[in-house]
Design a protein around this nucleic acid. Structure first.
Length: 445
DNA sequence: GGGTATGATTTAAA
DNA sequence: TTTAAATCATACCC
């Protein structure tokens, strides 16, 4: 473009009497024949312009060149300038600055907050961190899931940036192309800088609307990913049967005070092979380890459900009482006096706790005898109790069959106030002591 | 599909 | 911070 485009400012002063669109020289020496000839010329030029698009590129270039060199061209150009002047006036109103699109702003903010746009934060994202924080301390243990989340988010981020770059490149290319075209066209028709500016802004607007679609899709993808991630975290995973049995054994053998200490919880978690659960805010019950949290959850649920419906749990209580009694008896008969009350089953075998010191066991065993509980019986011989129990079992063919719940088991652990017999002081299970009103005894005595 | 069991979460209290 | 209690949400069973 070595030739300076003839922009609109070059036509100042155009217009005169006779023919407002024609310059002076076109109206001079006017005979009828001349006028007719001029009209014919203009008509020809216009006709050529109209048909220029129907021609091949080479032909069009040749025609264009011919037009540019035509003697009537300056006159025609000025006519077009004048027409343009009026047109530009009419479109001036549409040039107003538009306020930023609120939806676009929302999308931008969201992408920024999710870590998709803006600077990348250590390969992760603000959202991942937020999700981790929302999970209530389970973050470290869920690193696998987090890394999965981060990887997917990073993928989204990458796709987003690639697409965005493509759009921007296409936008720039298209803008350059249109500007070149307009510059080229400005040789044959008047084009104001504002008009070019306007065209560019139209192009940018079109591309930004496409960008908005991209941003919207990205946001949706992030939302889906996030909801899936969080939903997965909320999923309940049942404990396996063995874990439930271990927990139940502990619960029923510590019925008077089913509040395992932190250590006991940890031990239980290990014993049960409790995996990391997806504990959300509050679900952790304030504990440090998520595994311990799950144990705490289990005990919390168990305590409240047991208390609410003791009758329902009687059979279960009987069963576990009998089982622990057998375990105690076995331990006792092997001469291995239980000596580790603090940590469940530190001496016991495969998945059962040694409850030799558990007063709760006695409560159940004594109930099996049909005797009402008497504090004086505290310290009764373990073996005799177990023998009785075995007798009952052999007679009934099962732990509870043939016996009513009341015969087998009477609700224990709950005091008249609806609380547990032992003070609900957590972590006291390590060494159950005989408090006032306590109904259990320690066999080690 | 509906009922129940059960792990997780939330809220309030101590 | 832990717990009780209520509630939610899902797994499981029929």
């Amino acid at each position: 473009m070595d030739e300076q485009p003839r922009l609109m400012h070059s036509h100042a002063g155009v217009g005169m009497a006779g023919h407002p669109g024609l310059p002076q020289h076109m109206q001079e020496g006017g005979g009828a024949t001349d006028a007719d000839g001029r009209k014919q010329d203009i008509g020809d030029i216009l006709q050529q312009i109209m048909t220029i698009t129907d021609q091949s590129l080479d032909e069009a270039q040749a025609r264009k060149h011919a037009l540019n060199c035509h003697r009537m061209k300056p006159a025609l150009f000025n006519v077009l300038c004048e027409i343009k002047e009026k047109t530009v006036l009419s479109i001036r109103g549409a040039q107003e600055e538009e306020p930023p699109d609120p939806q676009l702003m929302r999308l931008d903010n969201m992408l920024l907050a999710e870590g998709v746009s803006g600077p990348e934060k250590g390969g992760g994202s603000a959202a991942a961190a937020a999700a981790a924080a929302a999970s209530g301390g389970a973050g470290a243990d869920n690193s696998a899931e987090h890394s999965d989340y981060r990887a997917k988010l990073s993928q989204i981020r990458q796709i987003y940036h690639t697409e965005l770059e493509k759009y921007e490149q296409a936008c720039n290319e298209f803008t350059t192309h249109v500007m070149n075209l307009l510059r080229e066209q400005s040789r044959t028709r008047p084009i104001s800088p504002k008009e070019i500016e306007r065209m560019v802004s139209i192009i940018h607007r079109k591309f930004s609307s496409i960008q908005m679609q991209l941003k919207q899709s990205t946001c949706e993808a992030v939302m889906i990913l996030r909801s899936r991630f969080l939903d997965a975290r909320r999923k309940r995973r049942n404990f396996n049967k063995q874990a439930t049995e271990i927990l139940n054994e502990y619960f029923y053998s510590h019925l008077s005070n089913p509040y395992p200490s932190e250590e006991a919880k940890e031990e239980l978690a290990k014993k049960c092979a409790i995996t990391v659960a997806q504990l959300g805010p509050g679900g952790g019950r304030g504990s440090v380890s998520p595994m311990i949290c799950r144990v705490s959850n289990w005990f919390g649920n168990k305590r409240i459900r047991y208390k609410k419906n003791i009758g329902k749990f009687q059979e279960e209580a009987n069963m576990y009482a009998a089982r622990t009694a057998v375990n105690a008896a076995n331990a006792s008969s092997h001469g291995s006096q239980a000596n580790s009350p603090s940590t469940p089953n530190s001496a016991g075998s495969a998945g059962s706790f040694n409850m030799s010191n558990s007063g709760d066991l006695f409560m159940s065993v004594q109930s099996l005898n049909g005797d009402s509980y008497q504090g004086a019986q505290v310290g009764a011989n373990v073996q005799s109790q177990v023998d009785t129990l075995r007798h009952v079992i052999s007679q009934t063919g099962g732990y509870s069959e043939g016996l009513t719940a009341n015969q087998m088991y009477s609700p224990q652990g709950i005091n008249a106030n609806g609380g547990w017999q032992d003070a609900p002081t957590p972590s006291s299970v390590t060494s159950p002591t005989e408090g006032p009103g306590s109904v259990h005894s320690d066999t080690s005595n």
